Amino acid sequence: MSIWVVVRWVIMLTAAAGELFAPLHPLAHPPIGWVALLAIFGGCSVGMVLVLGLQAANPFSAKQWLRPSWRSNPLNFRQPMQFFHLGAYVCLAQGLVLLLRLVFSHVPFYLEALVPMVMALGILVGLELVSLLFRAKVESRA
Score class of each variant (00 low, 15 high):
E19P: 00
A62K: 15
P30T: 07
L114T: 00
A62T: 10
V46P: 01
L50N: 00
A113G: 03
C91F: 15
S140N: 13
Q82N: 10
H29C: 01
S2C: 03
N76E: 14
A113M: 05
L133G: 10
M12L: 10
L127K: 06
P108T: 12
Q55V: 03
V107M: 09
E19Y: 05
M117L: 15
Q94I: 14
L20P: 01
G18I: 10
W9M: 13
R141M: 11
M48S: 06
Q82D: 11
R78C: 07
M119Q: 14
Q55H: 12
F21G: 00
V103Y: 11
W9K: 00
A88C: 03
V118H: 01
S69H: 07
V118Y: 02
W65T: 07
M48F: 05
Q79V: 12
G43K: 09
L99P: 00
G33T: 02
A62L: 09
F109S: 08
A93D: 05
P26K: 08
W65P: 06
V115S: 04
L100T: 08
I3Y: 09
A17N: 00
S2H: 11
V7E: 01
H106M: 08
G122W: 10
V7D: 00
S45M: 13
L102Y: 11
P74S: 11
V130G: 04
P23N: 05
M119P: 01
F41I: 04
L100M: 12
F104L: 09
Q82W: 14
G122E: 08
R67V: 11
Q82I: 14
A39T: 10
A142T: 10
V97S: 05
V49L: 14
F83L: 14
K63H: 12
S131V: 09
R71M: 08
L37F: 08
S140P: 02
A120S: 14
P108V: 06
A36C: 02
F109N: 08
G122M: 09
V130E: 02
A93L: 05
W65S: 05
A136I: 08
L54S: 02
L54A: 02
M119W: 07
V5W: 12
I11K: 00
Q55L: 12
Q64V: 15
M12S: 04
L99V: 13
A136S: 13
L99T: 05
S131R: 14
A113Y: 10
E128A: 05
M12F: 02
Q79G: 09
L54W: 08
F84V: 09
H25R: 15
G33K: 02
F60P: 00
L37V: 07
L99F: 04
I40Q: 04
I3P: 01
L75I: 12
P30S: 02
V130C: 05
L52K: 05
S72P: 00
Y110F: 15
S61G: 05
